[in-house]
Amino acid sequence: MIQLMIGRKLDLSRREQAAGSLGEVALQVEGLSCGDLYQDVSFEVREGEVLGFYGLVGAGRTEIAETLFGLRRPTAGTIRLGAEELNHIASPATAIAHGISLVPESRKEQGLVLGMNCRDNMTLPQVGDLTSGPFVSDGAEIAIFDQYRDTLQIKTPSWRQAVGNLSGGNQQKIVIGKWLAMRPRILIVDEPTRGIDVGSKAEIHNLIRKLAGQGYAVIVISSEMPEVLHVSDRIVAMYHGRVMRTFTADEVTEDSLVAAISGIDQGRAA
């Protein structure tokens, strides 16, 4: 029945499992709630691990990311970052200081200043540290841009190009580069491949795996099942603001995942 709903067969082109190479717990969330948006959410992410969040739109995944990034105040619960335990994160500036980065859901509305050039967009969160005397140091900024343009293979004629003129995939890479340049401990990516071409999608999926391999703790929020299945080590399935079940990559099947996020599983999860 569920296979009929999806309309295609399970195709797991799964990467080789990197089990055993996980580091310490980078982020542990317990009993986190935010009014009606989500309730009693608990999970943990380790360094070197990709944690996928899967669910329908409105299941509360983006809201959890916004809470972790200091854009929303939780009403209950604790957030443990390494050894530090917090009730909330006051602002994005605080989140950034704690080594959390968020690649937001909508790159045009939240991620980029479209009229600004590529370099300035990429260095925006850290431009305060790139000064010589009272002025911004052009050289330091260009060095960072060049480095991440090469790493992420961003295609742009020059750093002077306004970001609004780039393709969707390249825009998304600018946003990702912006946050990688901050060298975060925890990278949250919300719908990383929405509205970009197939080639760039694959590149971004590989990049996420590579980042985990380098020891980043990565949280991937996605509404695309193949994406979640492909990149995640573990998958949190959400339904109506609640965590229904957490799967490991070995035990997850499309059927069980769809069952979990549509609430069919409710009896068993509770």
Partner: peptide, 23 residues
Amino acid sequence: HTVHGRNIYAVGGNRAAAVNAGI
């Protein structure tokens, strides 16, 4: 040429993105 000036353009160009960048 200053950080404050850069932030002026960022906040005016896209306030949500400026907040997201920790400004």
